[in-house]
Amino acid sequence: MPRGSVGWIVAVIALAAIGLTVKSYFGPAGGPAGTGGGPAMLAGAPAQSYPVKTLGGSTDSLDRYRGHVVLVNLWASWCAPCRSETPALERLYEQERARGLVVLGIDQGESAIAAAGFAKDLKLRYPILLDEDQQYGRAYAAIGLPTSLVVDGSGRIVRGIDGELTLAQMHEAVDPVLRGSL
């Protein structure tokens, strides 16, 4: 190969390397594989599951309800909006359990005694889990209580909602998933 050609090849390689270097700081890096910033941002993400105690002392987790549409509700007995929302959750459970809906109440950070008192006061029949380490609250990016998530049968989060819901809003959140349209 002529000496001049080798010189040109070396120069082109050097320029290309410099160009790629500069471009690497301006080029699109690609979207992140996940996001944070409140439960609404979790739509589409796989729902995390942790084994925790139930009111009866056994161990349970969200994963056990795979195949059902699950409305996960994070709550605590001292939380006034949780107390006012809970009767509607119980009604939703009664109305939709035949269609395969599971309402899963997950108490955040309290002892069984506080959670059991709350469940007894409000005559709750849907399953209640005790998340003393608040793992679900962290994983679901709760920015307050109550926090609700709709999880489809495949374990994917369809919606994450911060704050108290009415019965109509609960229906609006779960009906499309129960119909299989989402």
């Binding site: 270097t21 301006f26 992140p32 996940g34 944070g36 793992q135 994983a139």
Partner: peptide, 30 residues
């Protein structure tokens, strides 16, 4: 290029069990 165009060193601190999007890296940190 790295010194002038690269972003300054950033420290991302998050609570256990949470996710931080890292748009500059095109990744999310769990």
């Amino acid at each position: 290029s790295s010194g002038l165009l690269g972003p300054d060193t950033e420290t991302v601190q998050r609570a256990p069990g949470t996710v931080a999007p890292l748009p500059d890296v095109g990744a999310a940190a769990f």
